[in-house]
């Protein structure tokens, strides 16, 4: 089933203020990276969801593919000021992955192959707003864009949509990630222009 972000499609995009403040529209898909691109063979790939009690839930690549798939079309906003509208993805909703996970945690720390991390409130992974995405524009997600799979949390700045995602730790206390420990905002709402700490 398709999931389309409401309000930013069709004719409204042509005339309405589809861009958050301080952003410009781009038609290409810039590649940003804080390090070398990890090469993760699908046979070795796994996704691990860990709770604050130490419980772990693991999915191999075939297991991820066997879960219900969604095809969100969303706008993405990079903190470096480019925005790209109407991007098409396929992946597994975090609602599906979190279903049945017993937790009292309020925060999540996302881990990637290659060592990258980013943090966000657990609530922002729920409610049909976050996916583990493995397909972009109908083809397997290229490694430079985060393949085999990346987190997709389009309502926050795109640094929260961790490339090469390998797992999420659920935490009672917030723990800042890679960019959040170097001056970037803990939450990163593009519509409130939360780029840096204190914004």
């Amino acid at each position: 089933m398709g999931i389309v972000s409401p309000g930013f499609q069709g004719r409204r995009r042509m005339s309405g203020p589809a861009l958050p403040p301080g952003q410009y529209l781009t038609e290409d898909f810039p590649v940003l990276s804080a390090g070398p691109t990890p090469k993760v063979p699908l046979d070795d790939w796994e996704f691990v969801l860990g709770t604050e009690t130490g419980a772990e839930f693991r999915w191999t690549w075939p297991e991820l593919m066997g879960l219900p798939q969604e095809t969100p079309t969303v706008d993405i906003h990079c903190v470096t000021r480019w925005s790209k509208l109407g991007t098409s993805w396929q992946g597994v909703s975090l609602d599906t992955l979190l279903d049945g996970v017993d937790t009292a945690a309020r925060y999540a720390l996302v881990h990637s192959y290659g060592g990258y991390t980013t943090n966000l409130p657990l609530d922002d992974l729920r409610g049909g707003r976050a996916w583990v995405a493995h397909t972009y524009d109908g083809v397997p997600l290229p490694a430079e864009h985060g393949g085999p799979a990346r987190l997709l949390v389009p309502h926050l700045y795109f640094w929260k949509s961790a490339k090469w995602v390998r797992g999420i730790r659920l935490l009672v206390d917030d723990q800042p990630g890679f960019w959040e420990t170097a001056g970037y905002h803990d939450y990163g709402d593009p519509w409130r222009e939360q780029r840096y700490q204190g914004d």
Partner: peptide, 22 residues
């Protein structure tokens, strides 16, 4: 790595991050 939200300088031997400047 400068195509990023900040500058990330990594060790040429082990690739771990040595310096970040935002």
């Amino acid at each position: 790595y400068s195509h990023a939200p900040g500058l990330v300088a990594r060790c040429p031997a082990c690739t771990e991050v040595m310096l970040r400047l935002v």
